[in-house]
């Protein structure tokens, strides 16, 4: 609890002022999203004029943006691509990160900190610096015309982050529990399945979610490597503007559709997500 503004006598007024300020700021921060959301229900006439809060809502724009114009990337195709790419890459990340986090915490390798630093340091490599070799390699291995390339790239993009977060969660597993399981005769698999994973389950979920968010929102690699047959939602969202000009209502409808999965997921898991990022890293 913050130490200022406890509701006590004179403090009650301050408290009320702080609460109002919080709500005001919350409103300001949320406003662009709110605006985007309501504009999606406007007619283009209402949207492309002086800002209007009251209007006759229509689902017309949603109908239009989810239709696939011939020869262009459709919403459903992009969404399918995004879900497949993001889910598969996140699954692979988790499958690799769980044993790695185990080897960094519970039965740590020698020099575990150096391994951890290596993983994190790769996040400092600007992706743009390796886009060209990636393109050349992808072409060489014939990966450009599939979803596989983005799966691989998002996996390598999220792996260090996932390892970092999972390490925090694994660290919170009490040593004695694993020792007790060893004494109880549990082998490694059984220790993992019966003891460790149930404890870190919320952390696994939060980590997977963060990977999901970053992969879902990724645009640069998706657009540059322009994988035919693997175009994702961000490409679709930006193409709505690029190809259809200043149609703000349609843009808003498309933006809402593009961001909705991640926003909902983020709302559900906000508390855990941050615990994973901040706890364990710091005591």
């Amino acid at each position: 609890m913050a130490d200022f503004a406890k509701p006590k006598g004179k403090g009650r007024f301050t408290s009320l002022a702080f609460t109002s300020l919080t709500w005001l700021l919350a409103g300001i921060f949320f406003f662009p999203i709110f605006w985007m959301f309501i504009s999606g229900f406007k007619s283009e006439l209402d949207a492309n004029g002086a800002p209007k809060l009251f209007f006759e809502p229509t689902l017309e724009q949603y109908r239009i943006v989810t239709e696939t114009p011939p020869g262009q990337l459709g919403f459903w195709e992009a969404t399918t691509n995004s879900f497949i790419i993001v889910i598969v890459s996140t699954l692979i990340v988790m499958m690799l990160a769980v044993p790695t986090a185990y080897a960094l915490t519970i039965r740590p390798v020698g020099k575990w900190m150096e391994y951890l630093f290596f993983f994190i340091s790769t996040k400092f490599l600007p992706i743009v610096a390796s886009i060209l070799p990636i393109y050349i390699l992808a072409k060489h291995f014939d990966l450009l015309s599939s979803r596989r390339l983005l799966i691989i790239l998002y996996m390598s993009m999220n792996l260090p982050l996932a390892i970092w977060m999972l390490r925090s969660f694994f660290q919170e597993v009490p040593r004695e529990l694993i020792e007790a399981a060893e004494i109880d005769g549990a082998n490694l698999r059984s220790q993992m399945v019966s003891v460790i994973l149930p404890i870190v389950a919320p952390g696994l979920a939060a980590t997977a979610l963060l990977c999901f968010i970053f992969a879902w929102n990724e645009y640069f690699l998706a657009v540059q490597l322009n994988t035919t047959g693997g175009e994702t939602v961000p490409i679709w969202a930006s193409s709505v503007v690029d190809e259809r000009g200043q149609f703000l209502a349609k843009l808003s409808a498309a933006s809402t559709l593009a961001t909705l999965p991640v926003i909902v997921a983020g709302w559900v898991a906000q508390k855990r997500m941050i615990r994973g990022l901040a706890m364990g890293a710091i005591k």
Binding site: G27, F29, F30, P32, M36, I213, N217, Y219, A237, G266
Partner: peptide, 18 residues
């Protein structure tokens, strides 16, 4: 809190466009 964290969840491309 939920309102305030939402901008972080928005796709950067969409944030830029909006």
């Amino acid at each position: 809190r939920t309102l305030i964290i939402t901008p972080f969840l928005v796709m950067p491309v969409v944030a830029g466009l909006v």
